Amino acid sequence: MEFVFEKIHVPNKHSFISRKLPLKSNDSIHSHKNFELNYIWSGSGRRIVGDNISGFEKGDLVLLGPDLPHCWEVLQDEVPLNPTCIVTHFSENIVGSDFFKMPELEKVVELLKQSKQGLRFKVQDDSLISQILEKMTTLEGLAYYIELLKVFHLLLQVEDREKLSNPIGYNVVFSKNLEKINKVYEYVFQNIQEGVRLEEASTLLNMAPSSFCRFFKKKTDLTFMEYVKRVRVGIAAKLLAETDKQITQICYESGYNNLANFNYYFKHIMGVTPSNYRKSFE
């Protein structure tokens, strides 16, 4: 799977753009400066947001902040059914705009700030918000803006929200060296179970391991191995919450070969042991 930096084109004289798009089985992990609200109209598969890997299905609703790597992969048996999503992009500068400084929009601004980690909204009945989002794909001007404010209003009413990704400081990643960082991220995702090696990662960028470590730390605010540990723990947390697999098996499937290390790093990052984390979902 390719990992790319994407620039979203928002037409002149518009602050937002909504589109109903097909979900493709070979979509790449990508990032862009804009905020994104992604609603799954139909289909299911695997979602990657930052260091979080989760499943998605019809009705999945996620708000992404700027510069957050993400991807929706469709299950192969869903491809003939034309899985579809409704995607809304709006400028990363919206939070600092004069309009959004109104007291009435303080909670919206706070919501957008929280989206830097990716927010999943667990909506019990998504019929109203899906109707508005579909309508927005056909509107322009003030009518479009009014409907978007309705969407924000509905999102604020959803109390059950899930932060998808650990805070990894993506805001400092996007620079002239972005492609190099993306290449490293892709290597980690592809090899997380088989084994991630510093020497292999540094070779991708034609750097000595010591130079690579300094480069990665400067651009992500994490050491390379800290990032790898966060990805592994994210995978483990997903398996603990959604499967009945033994903790020992999850330890190995998330890339650890030592149960003691797995328990230590899981608690260090998540704040609880793997067993207690699982109990919170029972």
Rank of each mutant, 00 (worst) to 15 (best):
L23K: 08
K24D: 07
S25Y: 13
D27Q: 06
S28T: 05
S28R: 06
S28Y: 01
H32T: 00
N34M: 12
E36M: 07
E36A: 09
S44Q: 14
R46H: 07
R46E: 12
I48C: 00
V49S: 04
G50W: 03
N52I: 00
I53V: 07
I53Y: 04
S54M: 10
G55P: 13
D60K: 02
L61R: 00
L61Y: 02
V62Y: 09
L63S: 11
L64D: 02
P66G: 12
P69M: 02
H70R: 04
V74T: 15
V74S: 09
L75Y: 14
P80Y: 10
P80I: 14
L81D: 12
N82P: 11
P83C: 02
T84M: 13
T88N: 01
I94D: 03
S97E: 04
F99D: 07
P103W: 11
L105C: 06
K113V: 13
K113Y: 09
G118K: 07
F121S: 03
I129A: 03
I129E: 01
S130G: 02
I132D: 15
G141Y: 10
L142K: 06
Y144H: 13
I146P: 06
I146H: 08
K150N: 15
H153M: 15
L156N: 09
L156H: 00
V158D: 15
